[in-house]
Simulated scan of single mutants.
Amino acid sequence: MTKHEFFVDMTCEGCSGAVTRVLTKLDVKFDIDLPNKKVFIDSDKDKDVLLETLKKTGKTVTYIGPK
């Protein structure tokens, strides 16, 4: 399993809630670091699948790399 790090432009609990909703549907393990606007995802899924899923929140998302 790979741990992926993403930058997601989250500013509040509502933003992190949106991230939680889309990632829960994917059935992956994840951690949200709201102050640093980072999301860490443990998954064997392709990073592009994870990136497209995070973009469904409407937030700016950038793939930083494997952690």
Rank of each mutant, 00 (worst) to 15 (best):
D27M: 01
T11I: 07
N36R: 06
G58K: 03
K59H: 13
F7A: 07
D33I: 05
K67A: 14
K56Y: 05
R21G: 02
T62F: 14
G14S: 09
L50D: 09
D33H: 03
T2V: 12
T60G: 03
K45E: 12
P66W: 15
I64T: 14
T53P: 00
D33N: 10
P35A: 01
L26F: 06
F7N: 06
D33Q: 01
Y63S: 10
L54K: 04
V49M: 11
E13L: 05
K55W: 09
I32D: 00
V49T: 14
D31I: 05
L34E: 00
L50M: 08
P35S: 02
P66A: 15
M1N: 10
G65V: 15
F40Y: 14
D42P: 00
L34S: 00
R21V: 08
K47W: 11
T53D: 03
T20E: 13
L50Q: 10
T57W: 04
V22N: 01
V61M: 11
V28A: 06
F40G: 05
V39M: 04
D9Y: 07
V22L: 02
K59Q: 09
V28D: 05
T2H: 13
P35V: 01
T24S: 05
L26R: 08
I64W: 13
L50A: 07
L26D: 05
K25F: 03
T62C: 11
T53C: 08
Y63H: 13
V22H: 01
G14M: 07
D31M: 05
N36I: 01
V8Q: 01
M10S: 02
K25W: 02
P35R: 02
V8D: 02
L54V: 04
G17S: 12
T11V: 06
C12H: 04
T62M: 14
